[in-house]
Design a protein around this nucleic acid. Structure first.
Lengths: 197, 197
DNA sequence: CGTTGTTGACTGATCAGTCAATCAAGTTAG
DNA sequence: CTAACTTGATTGACTGATCAGTCAACAACG
């Protein structure tokens, strides 16, 4: 029973079904058919809207990145000091929806995929670069530029590492704990800097 | 021209070929045939020795974990103080051979695989638990136990995050830089603790 | 009627895993 | 010493299953 103006809705349904399917199998070994069935449509329709499997996966990745970016952006809007901006980024990285096991699984799978698929690699680089420059921007006001760059690398690695452990651990990922870990890192670095000079 | 006592050699060749093949394709979408050809044998032989594809991959993961563990263990032997033990773990995590792009790719792929394959998951849990307890053991002598556990989580996440970035970045992974980052974290935490109480 | 949404049925290709057979190097019996 | 036998190494050829992607057709709506 086809209705008009279904495209946007179907695209979103397929993207969400992709996340669920990836989480269910724990890998990219998901057939287009499985995803489509989960979304309640035929596999042919998935091809119709996305062109191919890779495009569907990349679109899903883009979706998750969009969620992340919007979380961070919203929090950044009300952050006045550089220190508050750091906290905004950290909290934006660990919102409840992003810590959902299904989302975490997808991130991890995408990381792996970024090694092989040019499209995924490009997208991943955008995410990395954006996070890095946002971090450096906030940090340069708190420490020398060189140190800011190194610290940004550390924070980013820490965030990614925590994602990884959330995706693989059996414990339910906990926003508070994740935030505390990264904040602890930032605090330790900042305090050390201040005492030193 | 079959000779006796080939088993050990063939197993190692196949494991190394698996690492290379994974790096070449950047994913687990490697056929047993590709791996076998790389090792200079037939795909049937790979099945003969390892049983199946999953077993071959898990054996490869076990191999990499063994390399990591032996590096850390050797360094731990000559480390006298808790602080030196931390440095041993950190240096052991970033030896040149482990930072090889092929090895990094494999780690990342294995991380992803640990979500899906029970065998890989079990193995990953062993790695995580071992690293965690080694870290906590060294840290408890430097700070209260609760803080030691949190710090161990941070260090482990940082190490994993750096692995991840090495696997995905285009820059050649650099031992010195990786070590400096983690050491910086440790130093910052320790200094802060000491000043506080 | 034309456009948009939707599908079932099909295909061509790929791959993991199996199996029976071959080949070399020891081993035992005579 | 050697012929017969055993055992481990190794393969080519096959199969059964799976899957991405295609296509022609149909259904509803305007």
């Amino acid at each position: 029973m086809p209705r008009r103006g279904m495209e946007q809705q179907r695209r979103l349904e397929l993207v969400e079904a992709t996340i669920e399917a990836i989480h269910a199998t724990g890998s990219l070994d998901v057939t287009v058919g499985q995803i489509a069935r989960r979304a309640g449509v035929s596999s042919a329709l998935a091809h119709h809207y996305f062109g191919g499997k890779d495009d569907l996966i990349v679109a899903t990745m883009r979706h998750l990145m969009g969620v992340f970016a919007s979380h961070v952006r919203r929090r950044l809007r009300t952050a006045k000091t550089p220190r508050a901006r750091l906290t905004a980024i950290i909290h934006g990285s660990f919102t409840a929806d992003q810590l959902q096991p299904a989302a975490m699984s997808s991130w991890l799978v995408f990381y792996a995929m970024a090694q092989a698929s040019p499209g995924a690699k490009r997208l991943h680089r955008v995410y990395t670069a954006r996070l890095h420059s946002t971090l450096v921007h906030a940090l340069t006001e708190l420490m020398p530029r060189a140190k800011a760059i190194e610290t940004a690398r550390g924070i980013a690695a820490l965030i990614d590492g925590i994602y990884l452990r959330c995706a693989l651990g059996d414990e339910t990922p906990d926003t508070k704990q994740a935030v505390a870990l990264v904040e602890g890192y930032v605090e330790a670095i900042l305090n050390r800097k201040m005492r030193r000079g």
